[in-house]
Amino acid sequence: MPLWTLFGLWNANATTGWPDGADDGQEGLIGMPRFAPERCAEGCEECAAVCPTAAISVHRDRSGAERLAVDYGRCVVCQLCVEACPTDAAMPSHDWAFGARDRCDLRLDGHRAERKTPVASRQGFRRSLHIRHIDAGSCNGCESELQALDNPFYNLHRFGIFFTPSPRFADLLLVTGPVTYAMRDPLLRAYEAMPDPRWVMAVGTCAVSGGISGGGYACGNGLEGVLPVDLYLPGCPPNPAALIEALLMFLDRAPQRVKGGRIVE
Protein backbone atom coordinates (compact mmCIF):
# COMPACT_ATOMS: atom_id res chain seq x y z
CA MET A 1 0.00 0.00 0.00
CA PRO A 2 1.75 3.18 -1.13
CA LEU A 3 1.99 6.18 1.14
CA TRP A 4 0.43 8.77 -1.13
CA THR A 5 0.60 11.56 1.42
CA LEU A 6 4.30 11.02 1.99
CA PHE A 7 4.78 10.84 -1.76
CA GLY A 8 2.92 14.13 -2.17
CA LEU A 9 4.98 15.83 0.52
CA TRP A 10 8.18 14.42 -0.93
CA ASN A 11 7.37 16.00 -4.29
CA ALA A 12 6.95 19.34 -2.49
CA ASN A 13 5.04 22.29 -3.86
CA ALA A 14 4.43 21.97 -7.58
CA THR A 15 2.54 25.24 -7.91
CA THR A 16 4.09 28.02 -9.91
CA GLY A 17 4.65 31.37 -8.21
CA TRP A 18 3.34 33.09 -11.33
CA PRO A 19 2.00 35.76 -11.80
CA ASP A 20 4.45 37.10 -9.18
CA GLY A 21 7.52 36.27 -11.23
CA ALA A 22 8.21 32.57 -11.79
CA ASP A 23 7.21 30.39 -14.74
CA ASP A 24 3.83 30.86 -16.41
CA GLY A 25 4.14 27.41 -17.99
CA GLN A 26 3.71 28.67 -21.55
CA GLU A 27 7.26 28.37 -22.89
CA GLY A 28 7.29 27.97 -26.65
CA LEU A 29 3.58 28.55 -27.02
CA ILE A 30 2.59 30.34 -30.21
CA GLY A 31 -0.07 32.93 -29.50
CA MET A 32 -2.21 35.25 -31.59
CA PRO A 33 -0.44 36.73 -34.62
CA ARG A 34 0.95 40.24 -34.29
CA PHE A 35 0.44 42.70 -37.15
CA ALA A 36 2.53 45.57 -38.43
CA PRO A 37 0.17 47.12 -41.01
CA GLU A 38 2.83 49.61 -42.13
CA ARG A 39 4.68 46.69 -43.71
CA CYS A 40 1.70 45.61 -45.82
CA ALA A 41 2.33 45.55 -49.56
CA GLU A 42 -0.01 47.66 -51.69
CA GLY A 43 -3.05 45.67 -52.76
CA CYS A 44 -2.03 42.55 -50.79
CA GLU A 45 -4.89 40.67 -49.18
CA GLU A 46 -3.18 37.30 -48.68
CA CYS A 47 -3.84 37.12 -44.94
CA ALA A 48 -7.51 38.01 -45.29
CA ALA A 49 -7.90 35.39 -48.03
CA VAL A 50 -6.54 32.50 -45.96
CA CYS A 51 -8.20 33.38 -42.64
CA PRO A 52 -10.75 30.60 -41.93
CA THR A 53 -12.90 32.82 -39.70
CA ALA A 54 -12.80 36.15 -41.59
CA ALA A 55 -11.01 37.74 -38.65
CA ILE A 56 -8.89 39.81 -41.03
CA SER A 57 -10.15 42.30 -43.55
CA VAL A 58 -8.60 44.93 -45.78
CA HIS A 59 -10.68 47.98 -46.56
CA ARG A 60 -10.22 51.53 -47.81
CA ASP A 61 -10.72 54.47 -45.48
CA ARG A 62 -12.13 57.85 -46.55
CA SER A 63 -8.81 59.06 -47.87
CA GLY A 64 -8.62 55.99 -50.09
CA ALA A 65 -5.72 54.42 -48.19
CA GLU A 66 -5.85 50.68 -47.54
CA ARG A 67 -6.28 49.66 -43.95
CA LEU A 68 -5.86 46.31 -42.30
CA ALA A 69 -8.45 45.39 -39.68
CA VAL A 70 -8.07 42.40 -37.39
CA ASP A 71 -10.72 41.14 -35.00
CA TYR A 72 -8.97 39.01 -32.38
CA GLY A 73 -12.39 38.04 -31.14
CA ARG A 74 -12.60 35.89 -34.27
CA CYS A 75 -9.00 34.59 -34.30
CA VAL A 76 -8.51 30.83 -33.87
CA VAL A 77 -4.70 31.11 -33.66
CA CYS A 78 -4.20 28.87 -36.70
CA GLN A 79 -1.17 30.85 -37.98
CA LEU A 80 -2.29 30.61 -41.62
CA CYS A 81 -2.03 34.40 -42.01
CA VAL A 82 1.52 34.37 -40.66
CA GLU A 83 2.50 31.73 -43.22
CA ALA A 84 0.72 33.51 -46.07
CA CYS A 85 2.11 37.00 -45.41
CA PRO A 86 4.81 37.86 -47.98
CA THR A 87 6.16 40.91 -46.11
CA ASP A 88 6.32 39.98 -42.41
CA ALA A 89 3.39 42.26 -41.67
CA ALA A 90 1.84 39.28 -39.86
CA MET A 91 4.26 37.76 -37.39
CA PRO A 92 4.11 34.84 -34.99
CA SER A 93 4.07 35.94 -31.38
CA HIS A 94 3.80 34.70 -27.82
CA ASP A 95 0.82 37.03 -27.18
CA TRP A 96 -1.97 35.29 -25.35
CA ALA A 97 -3.19 37.81 -22.74
CA PHE A 98 -6.30 38.75 -24.68
CA GLY A 99 -8.75 39.09 -21.80
CA ALA A 100 -10.78 42.28 -22.37
CA ARG A 101 -13.75 43.98 -20.74
CA ASP A 102 -14.67 45.75 -23.92
CA ARG A 103 -15.15 43.89 -27.20
CA CYS A 104 -13.59 46.89 -29.00
CA ASP A 105 -10.25 46.21 -27.36
CA LEU A 106 -10.03 42.99 -29.38
CA ARG A 107 -10.19 44.92 -32.65
CA LEU A 108 -7.14 46.21 -34.40
CA ASP A 109 -8.07 48.74 -37.03
CA GLY A 110 -6.94 52.10 -38.27
CA HIS A 111 -9.36 54.14 -36.25
CA ARG A 112 -10.10 53.50 -32.61
CA ALA A 113 -13.77 52.86 -31.93
CA GLU A 114 -15.15 54.88 -29.02
CA ARG A 115 -15.52 53.08 -25.72
CA LYS A 116 -18.75 51.71 -24.39
CA THR A 117 -20.19 52.90 -21.08
CA PRO A 118 -17.73 52.72 -18.17
CA VAL A 119 -17.23 49.35 -16.54
CA ALA A 120 -19.70 48.67 -13.74
CA SER A 121 -18.29 48.64 -10.23
CA ARG A 122 -17.62 45.23 -8.74
CA GLN A 123 -16.90 46.34 -5.22
CA GLY A 124 -16.76 43.41 -2.83
CA PHE A 125 -15.65 41.03 -5.57
CA ARG A 126 -11.91 41.53 -5.52
CA ARG A 127 -10.80 38.72 -3.29
CA SER A 128 -13.03 35.83 -4.17
CA LEU A 129 -15.13 34.71 -7.09
CA HIS A 130 -17.39 31.75 -7.70
CA ILE A 131 -17.80 30.55 -11.24
CA ARG A 132 -20.45 28.41 -12.91
CA HIS A 133 -19.15 26.95 -16.17
CA ILE A 134 -21.51 26.11 -19.03
CA ASP A 135 -20.33 24.25 -22.10
CA ALA A 136 -22.53 25.58 -24.87
CA GLY A 137 -21.07 23.38 -27.59
CA SER A 138 -17.30 23.68 -27.33
CA CYS A 139 -14.81 21.26 -28.90
CA ASN A 140 -13.65 20.33 -25.38
CA GLY A 141 -10.38 22.20 -25.89
CA CYS A 142 -11.54 25.01 -23.59
CA GLU A 143 -12.76 22.46 -21.00
CA SER A 144 -9.38 20.73 -21.11
CA GLU A 145 -7.67 24.03 -20.22
CA LEU A 146 -10.31 24.97 -17.62
CA GLN A 147 -9.80 21.58 -15.99
CA ALA A 148 -6.06 22.25 -16.01
CA LEU A 149 -6.66 25.27 -13.74
CA ASP A 150 -7.21 22.83 -10.90
CA ASN A 151 -4.01 20.92 -11.45
CA PRO A 152 -1.22 21.53 -8.93
CA PHE A 153 0.79 23.68 -11.35
CA TYR A 154 -1.83 26.45 -11.70
CA ASN A 155 -3.84 25.71 -8.55
CA LEU A 156 -6.60 28.23 -9.15
CA HIS A 157 -7.81 28.03 -5.54
CA ARG A 158 -4.82 30.01 -4.35
CA PHE A 159 -6.45 33.09 -5.90
CA GLY A 160 -9.73 32.59 -4.06
CA ILE A 161 -11.42 31.61 -7.32
CA PHE A 162 -13.63 28.53 -7.35
CA PHE A 163 -15.92 26.64 -9.68
CA THR A 164 -19.31 25.97 -8.17
CA PRO A 165 -21.87 23.38 -9.30
CA SER A 166 -24.87 25.59 -8.61
CA PRO A 167 -25.65 28.79 -10.50
CA ARG A 168 -27.29 30.00 -7.27
CA PHE A 169 -23.86 30.36 -5.68
CA ALA A 170 -22.17 31.77 -8.76
CA ASP A 171 -21.00 35.31 -9.40
CA LEU A 172 -19.72 34.66 -12.88
CA LEU A 173 -21.17 32.55 -15.68
CA LEU A 174 -18.27 31.24 -17.75
CA VAL A 175 -19.42 30.11 -21.19
CA THR A 176 -17.55 28.12 -23.80
CA GLY A 177 -18.69 27.11 -27.27
CA PRO A 178 -20.63 28.76 -30.09
CA VAL A 179 -24.03 28.19 -28.38
CA THR A 180 -25.76 25.36 -30.19
CA TYR A 181 -29.52 25.40 -30.67
CA ALA A 182 -29.96 22.70 -28.01
CA MET A 183 -27.72 24.39 -25.42
CA ARG A 184 -29.24 27.85 -25.75
CA ASP A 185 -32.09 27.14 -23.32
CA PRO A 186 -30.02 25.41 -20.63
CA LEU A 187 -27.55 28.31 -20.86
CA LEU A 188 -30.25 30.94 -20.39
CA ARG A 189 -31.77 28.97 -17.52
CA ALA A 190 -28.41 28.84 -15.74
CA TYR A 191 -28.10 32.62 -16.16
CA GLU A 192 -31.61 33.22 -14.86
CA ALA A 193 -30.88 31.07 -11.81
CA MET A 194 -27.95 33.29 -10.80
CA PRO A 195 -28.51 35.94 -8.13
CA ASP A 196 -27.57 39.58 -8.73
CA PRO A 197 -24.95 40.87 -9.09
CA ARG A 198 -23.97 38.46 -11.85
CA TRP A 199 -21.53 38.64 -14.71
CA VAL A 200 -20.81 36.70 -17.88
CA MET A 201 -17.47 35.66 -19.34
CA ALA A 202 -17.05 34.39 -22.90
CA VAL A 203 -14.14 31.96 -22.98
CA GLY A 204 -12.61 30.89 -26.26
CA THR A 205 -13.13 32.31 -29.71
CA CYS A 206 -16.31 30.24 -30.22
CA ALA A 207 -18.05 31.89 -27.25
CA VAL A 208 -16.79 35.35 -28.20
CA SER A 209 -17.89 35.32 -31.84
CA GLY A 210 -18.76 31.79 -32.98
CA GLY A 211 -15.25 31.28 -34.27
CA ILE A 212 -14.87 28.48 -36.76
CA SER A 213 -17.96 26.60 -35.62
CA GLY A 214 -20.42 29.50 -35.38
CA GLY A 215 -23.41 29.74 -37.71
CA GLY A 216 -24.68 26.88 -39.84
CA TYR A 217 -27.83 24.92 -39.12
CA ALA A 218 -27.01 24.10 -35.50
CA CYS A 219 -24.99 26.97 -33.99
CA GLY A 220 -25.30 30.58 -32.99
CA ASN A 221 -22.40 33.02 -32.97
CA GLY A 222 -21.26 32.57 -29.41
CA LEU A 223 -22.82 34.89 -26.86
CA GLU A 224 -23.51 37.60 -29.44
CA GLY A 225 -27.19 38.43 -29.05
CA VAL A 226 -27.66 35.78 -26.35
CA LEU A 227 -26.30 37.26 -23.10
CA PRO A 228 -24.60 40.51 -22.10
CA VAL A 229 -20.87 39.79 -21.82
CA ASP A 230 -18.68 41.44 -19.17
CA LEU A 231 -15.41 39.72 -19.96
CA TYR A 232 -14.09 38.39 -23.25
CA LEU A 233 -11.22 35.96 -23.62
CA PRO A 234 -10.66 34.76 -27.19
CA GLY A 235 -8.16 31.99 -27.88
CA CYS A 236 -8.38 28.55 -29.35
CA PRO A 237 -8.31 27.51 -26.63
CA PRO A 238 -7.03 30.17 -24.21
CA ASN A 239 -4.26 28.58 -22.16
CA PRO A 240 -4.59 28.29 -18.36
CA ALA A 241 -2.33 31.30 -17.73
CA ALA A 242 -4.53 33.39 -20.03
CA LEU A 243 -7.59 32.22 -18.10
CA ILE A 244 -6.04 33.13 -14.76
CA GLU A 245 -4.87 36.50 -15.97
CA ALA A 246 -8.28 37.36 -17.41
CA LEU A 247 -10.01 36.39 -14.16
CA LEU A 248 -7.56 38.46 -12.08
CA MET A 249 -8.08 41.36 -14.46
CA PHE A 250 -11.83 41.03 -13.98
CA LEU A 251 -11.28 41.26 -10.22
CA ASP A 252 -9.11 44.38 -10.67
CA ARG A 253 -6.09 42.45 -9.44
CA ALA A 254 -4.22 42.63 -12.73
CA PRO A 255 -4.17 45.17 -15.55
CA GLN A 256 -5.87 44.51 -18.87
CA ARG A 257 -3.02 43.89 -21.26
CA VAL A 258 -4.81 44.11 -24.59
CA LYS A 259 -5.77 47.60 -25.78
CA GLY A 260 -7.07 48.32 -29.25
CA GLY A 261 -5.98 44.93 -30.53
CA ARG A 262 -2.41 45.22 -29.26
CA ILE A 263 -0.68 43.79 -26.23
CA VAL A 264 0.61 46.66 -24.11
CA GLU A 265 3.76 45.61 -22.29
Binding site: V50, P52, L80, G137, C139, N140, G141, G177, T180, G216
Partner: peptide, 29 residues
Protein backbone atom coordinates in the same frame (compact mmCIF):
# COMPACT_ATOMS: atom_id res chain seq x y z
CA UNK B 1 -26.02 15.72 -29.13
CA UNK B 2 -26.75 18.89 -27.16
CA UNK B 3 -23.39 19.87 -28.61
CA UNK B 4 -24.15 18.94 -32.20
CA UNK B 5 -22.56 21.79 -34.16
CA UNK B 6 -23.06 20.49 -37.69
CA UNK B 7 -19.30 20.28 -38.18
CA UNK B 8 -19.47 17.92 -41.17
CA UNK B 9 -21.46 20.38 -43.26
CA UNK B 10 -19.00 23.11 -42.31
CA UNK B 11 -16.31 21.38 -44.40
CA UNK B 12 -18.23 21.67 -47.65
CA UNK B 13 -16.65 24.07 -50.12
CA UNK B 14 -13.73 24.89 -47.81
CA UNK B 15 -10.15 25.02 -49.10
CA UNK B 16 -7.87 22.28 -47.80
CA UNK B 17 -5.73 24.34 -45.39
CA UNK B 18 -8.79 25.85 -43.77
CA UNK B 19 -10.48 22.44 -43.62
CA UNK B 20 -7.55 21.11 -41.56
CA UNK B 21 -8.04 23.98 -39.10
CA UNK B 22 -11.68 22.92 -38.87
CA UNK B 23 -10.81 19.23 -38.37
CA UNK B 24 -8.51 20.24 -35.50
CA UNK B 25 -11.51 21.79 -33.78
CA UNK B 26 -13.95 18.89 -33.97
CA UNK B 27 -12.65 17.36 -30.74
CA UNK B 28 -10.09 19.51 -28.95
CA UNK B 29 -8.30 16.72 -27.09
Amino acid sequence: FFKHRGMEKRFEGRCLTSAVVLAERVSGV
